[in-house]
């Protein structure tokens, strides 16, 4: 049976955990579009899910090559959104990790951080711009709509920074420390 869940995640790691918890309960993700998860009944714990951020858009030949390669190793492409890709593999095949060494993990985290950092800067820039417009509106006795937008953008930018960019940086630096003494 098909189950549709509407849900939004801020943190892709929490999202991945959620998908695996659902799988443990016998609900296997089969499709995803913006904040809309489609689950199908499956034996409990049949699949392990992993979310990966690609370097290129999903329809890029390089990404297609990679997906083909993943499929050859028993990994199933479930869905994609923008450059985010949802993979799953049967749990009977053992632990499923896309990246098994420190180097490739660091690379993946850095790619994700770059995306969120871009969004952070974008939000802060839009926020500042609107802040000045709002200021002008106030001095001209117009309702400062841009100030409200500024508050929103600046908040989103700050949240991105605190909850995604900084934790990812911490992860990268602890992995880099680890790398300096072992592989």
């Amino acid at each position: 049976m098909k189950h549709i869940v509407r849900k939004a995640f801020f943190d892709y790691q929490k999202e991945e955990k959620y998908l695996n918890e659902m799988s443990t309960k016998g609900l296997a993700l089969t499709d995803y579009t913006w904040c809309r998860y489609v689950f199908q009944d499956a034996p409990k714990g049949e699949y392990i899910y992993r979310i990966e951020l690609f370097q290129n858009p999903v329809n890029h030949p390089e990404s297609q090559n990679y997906i083909k390669f993943m499929e050859e190793t028993g990994v199933e492409f479930v869905a994609s959104y923008y450059r985010w890709v949802y993979f799953r593999r049967k749990a009977t095949e053992g632990e499923f990790d896309i990246y098994s060494d420190i180097d490739s993990r660091i690379k993946h985290y850095k790619r994700i951080r770059a995306l969120f950092l871009f969004l952070t800067v974008l939000n802060l820039a839009i926020g500042l711009l609107n802040f000045f417009y709002g200021h002008m509106q106030t001095s001209m006795d117009i309702r400062p709509i841009n100030s409200y937008i500024a508050i929103l953008s600046l908040s989103v930018g700050t949240l991105l920074l605190i909850f995604l960019v900084l934790p990812l940086s911490k992860k990268v630096s602890s992995l880099e420390k680890e790398k300096s003494i072992r592989e």
Partner: peptide, 11 residues
Amino acid sequence: RVSLGAGTLYG
């Protein structure tokens, strides 16, 4: 002991 991740192997 060594289990290669498909992403790591591809790279």
